[in-house]
């Protein structure tokens, strides 16, 4: 157990970076994903087309490729993304937003069509209909899949370890390389730190789900 005591600061600094990646990317993905979902149900065909293309492209591309694209391909087209941490945030947000969009869209589709029709019939605009009537009712069915997306995001942040971001996995790998005889243990420690994020997220999902269910 000396391994953990000796390397706790390294673990913790990696953990903090993972937490930051998760929180920032999660927040951006939530906003952008909801916008994409709104575009997908909008009456404007162009917006629907853009959203469908984006979601299908990002959802079906391995996350590592998204990182590669940002780090190696984008600069060739004159786009120079800020390196390291923020590149990771951009790649993770862009990728995760596609999944958020699908979760939110399925929630929107679960709200009976009559709700939107009634909203439009009293003269609410498309945006008001979505924001005041449809999305508030979609929240309940969207929370469980969204938590799944956020748990996946938490673990996906480890891809950043391959792109010069010293997050949890990268920190664990350094510790393992420095202590080859206890490498397995060092990596198991990494796993435990991920659980510190993902298990409470699962519990939170249950609590939120019950809370919103009562409100209806």
């Amino acid at each position: 157990m000396d391994l953990f005591a000796d390397n706790l600061p390294a673990y913790l600094s990696g953990f903090v970076v993972t937490l930051q990646l998760t929180a920032l990317s999660g927040a951006f993905a939530l906003v952008w994903g909801t916008v994409l979902a709104a575009m997908r149900v909008s009456p404007v065909a162009t917006l629907r087309g853009i959203a469908v293309t984006y979601v299908e492209l990002l959802r079906n591309t391995p996350l590592t490729l998204v990182f590669f694209f940002l780090v190696f391909v984008a600069p060739q087209f004159g786009v120079l993304p800020p390196l390291g941490f923020w590149t990771a945030v951009i790649a993770l947000s862009a990728y995760t937003s596609a999944f958020v969009a699908e979760a939110v869209r399925s929630g929107i589709n679960a709200v009976p069509l009559g709700q939107a029709e009634a909203a439009r019939a009293i003269g609410l605009t498309f945006g008001q209909t979505l924001g005041l009537v449809v999305l508030p009712q979609a929240v309940r069915s969207v929370i469980p899949p969204l938590i799944n997306v956020l748990i996946a995001l938490t673990k996906n942040t480890s891809v950043a370890a391959g792109f010069a971001v010293v997050e949890l996995l990268a920190a664990g790998r350094r510790i393992a390389l420095a202590n080859p005889s206890e490498a397995m243990l060092a990596l198991a420690g990494v796993g435990v730190f991920y659980l510190i994020i993902t298990i409470p997220a699962g519990l939170l999902a249950g609590v939120l789900e019950r809370k919103v269910a009562f409100a209806r």
């Binding site: 009634a118 003269g123 209806r216």
Partner: peptide, 23 residues
Amino acid sequence: GKGLAKLRADVGMVFQSFNLFAH
């Protein structure tokens, strides 16, 4: 668009399945 929303505000509608905002 906005013009249609404006017109709909002046045309009341009552549905078979009520469609009251459930939340």
